[in-house]
């Protein structure tokens, strides 16, 4: 059975949906602009990049003026940190591009919580902040159930997952001119599947992962986690 990579993992929080006339609404907070998050990440990246880039420049200069093994090894060492800084900038710019293009993703369910064996309709929408989609895009989605555990190993916190069940949902095309990306599908909670379990270090998660891929904007995946109660339909 497969496991999930760090990028594929949701932040794991089981949020309480908002009650709306049509049912229950989840809004992906990760896709929303947050000044606190932005400022914190920006200041950290600034400090990291400022320091690592300066050291890298100094050792690059040393290497170019007096090339020998010692300066080369030092250049490699600081290069790792500078590379991480470049990665941070790339991720930050990618995130800015996504959230400046789209409003946060939303999911609507008619009833909640879910029960084992229950079939339900899910509606996803993600409006553009301005303009419309140019070119053809696509939405892909996965409905999955997995075990998630966390444990301490020395001073590190390790995370492991084990996929119990995974279903690829039908792909949908996003046409040119779309202003609100929408996706509707029917899902079933596996009748013999386990209900959700939500403890601090051990969890059984039921999630939908919805990826929006449109030309000119980095692909973005929104995760929504649902509670499945121990009750059969």
């Amino acid at each position: 059975m497969s496991t999930l990579t760090t990028d594929q993992l949701s932040d794991g929080r089981l949020i309480v949906p908002e009650r709306v006339p049509e049912g229950f609404l989840w809004v992906d907070e990760k896709g929303a602009w947050s000044e606190d998050n932005f400022l914190g990440s920006f200041l950290f990246a600034l400090l990291w990049c400022g320091t690592s880039f300066s050291f890298f420049a100094v050792w690059l200069f040393n290497f170019l003026t007096a090339p020998h093994v010692g300066t080369f090894l030092m250049l490699l060492f600081v290069g790792v940190f500078a590379g991480a800084g470049v990665g941070m900038i790339w991720k930050g710019l990618r995130w800015l591009k996504i959230i400046s293009t789209f409003h946060p993703g939303e999911v609507l369910l008619a009833s909640y919580p879910l029960r084992t064996g229950e079939t339900f309709r899910l509606q996803f929408r993600r409006p553009l902040r301005r303009g419309y989609i140019q070119g053809l895009g696509e939405i892909t989605a996965k409905w999955l159930c997995y075990e998630w555990v966390q444990y301490r190993q020395g001073t590190d916190t390790e995370t492991r997952t084990h996929m119990l069940w995974e279903q690829d949902l039908p792909l949908m095309t996003i046409s040119t001119g779309t202003q609100v990306v929408t996706y509707e599908t029917k899902l079933t909670v596996l009748p013999e599947g386990p209900p959700s379990f939500d403890a601090k270090h051990n969890q059984v998660r039921w999630e939908i992962h919805i990826s929006v891929d449109v030309p000119g904007i980095p692909q973005d995946t929104t995760h929504f986690r649902f509670a499945v109660v121990p009750e059969a339909v």
């Binding site: 059975m1 379990f197 969890q203 109660v229």
Partner: peptide, 15 residues
């Protein structure tokens, strides 16, 4: 409790 958890014997977790 209605919310359980139920007794569970999984690959990484046992309740």
């Amino acid at each position: 409790p209605h919310s359980g958890p139920i007794t569970y014997n999984g690959s990484l977790i046992r309740v």
